[in-house]
């Protein structure tokens, strides 16, 4: 069967100063039929589109005709002791070749063990062994995909005793060793800082700004566990004021970057998500004006 004509990819610079939204199924029809004028790009979970055919791919074609795309993977398991699955990488490569996403990212986490995919993002110990392993895995992924990728700082609920370095140092060192870029999730910094008691400004200070290619914003939940408050990164509510404030500080430090609003559970009407996007866009515009004036 002949491959369908490739959708002409929009160059990544088009999303440089724009805030986008995560594409979720309840919003797809509306985004295809009535594209909001100020929405430049959307992010999809790559694995949702690794299908042979059918309505999902058809919808992505229609979305790609209207918006620039970002592919955000959840299945490469770059934090696994094992190397990433070459067949899975090849499928992602084919999807990238077909749709030409401006941004491609994955996570500093693992989800595959012993041949099973557990559909969550698990934490890794911040050790030399893990650093070498994840850097190797990112290099394998970048070679297979033929491009640099961004990897996202994790949110987590536990720490390993044998960690020998702070998470922010691990993330910065990883990016240097793998020669990859970073997707800085501002909500994840807030969540992990609360759960593990580190200072968000120390974290930001350790991140190499020049490697940050995208920012994420999302909501989280506060859960009472054994009398203590644990923050859960559930992407099921609006961004809270403290995370907006941290976003402002992040922009001031790393400069304007394409920013994504993620809302994956208890998904609200599209208008609610677009209003959050506009708020992020307003911050981006202010920083961009400031950067030009400087």
């Amino acid at each position: 069967m002949a491959a369908p004509a490739a959708v002409s990819p929009r160059p990544p610079w088009e999303v440089r100063l724009a805030a986008g939204i995560g594409l979720r199924h309840p919003h797809v029809a509306q985004l295809i039929e009535e594209p909001p004028a100020d929405l430049a790009w959307v992010e999809v979970h790559t694995e949702n589109y690794l299908v042979d055919g059918g309505p999902r791919l058809r919808q992505l074609e229609l979305i790609a005709e209207r918006y620039a795309l970002s592919f955000h993977g959840v299945g490469l398991s770059l934090g696994s002791a094992d190397e990433p699955d070459r067949a899975h990488l090849a499928r992602i490569r084919r999807l990238c070749d077909r749709f030409g996403p401006g941004l491609v990212s994955e996570h500093i986490a693992w989800s595959v063990e012993g041949g099973h995919y557990l559909n969550d993002l698990f934490p890794i110990p911040y050790t030399e062994e893990a650093l070498a392993t994840v850097a190797r895995n990112i290099r394998i992924a970048q070679d297979a995909l033929g491009r640099r990728i961004m990897v996202e700082n994790p949110s987590s609920y536990l720490r390993f005793l044998d960690s020998t370095m702070a998470e922010c140092r691990f993330v910065a060192e990883l990016a240097a060793r793998a020669d990859c870029d970073l997707l800085l999730d501002v909500n994840n910094i807030h969540v992990s800082a609360h759960n593990h008691g580190f200072a968000v400004d120390d974290y930001l200070a350790a991140i190499p700004s020049e490697r940050v290619g995208e920012l994420h914003l999302a909501g989280h939940a506060r859960v009472l566990a054994d009398g203590a408050v644990l923050l859960i990164d559930d992407h099921a509510s609006a961004v809270i004021p403290a995370v907006w404030a941290l976003y402002e500080r992040t922009l001031a430090r790393v400069g304007p970057r394409p920013t994504l609003l993620e809302w994956d559970n208890d998904i609200p009407p599209l208008e609610v998500l677009l209003a959050e996007r506009s708020q992020a866009q307003a911050w981006l515009d202010r920083v961009a004006v400031h950067a030009r004036a400087a």
């Binding site: 110990p125 005793l161 566990a225 203590a228 644990l230």
Partner: peptide
């Protein structure tokens, strides 16, 4: 292998089990 602080490791691990 897990850090024990104000929240017991078993309680922290339970978050991942519930998530999965």
């Amino acid at each position: 292998s897990l850090v024990a602080d104000h929240l017991p490791p078993a309680r922290r691990l339970a978050v991942y089990r519930a998530n999965v």
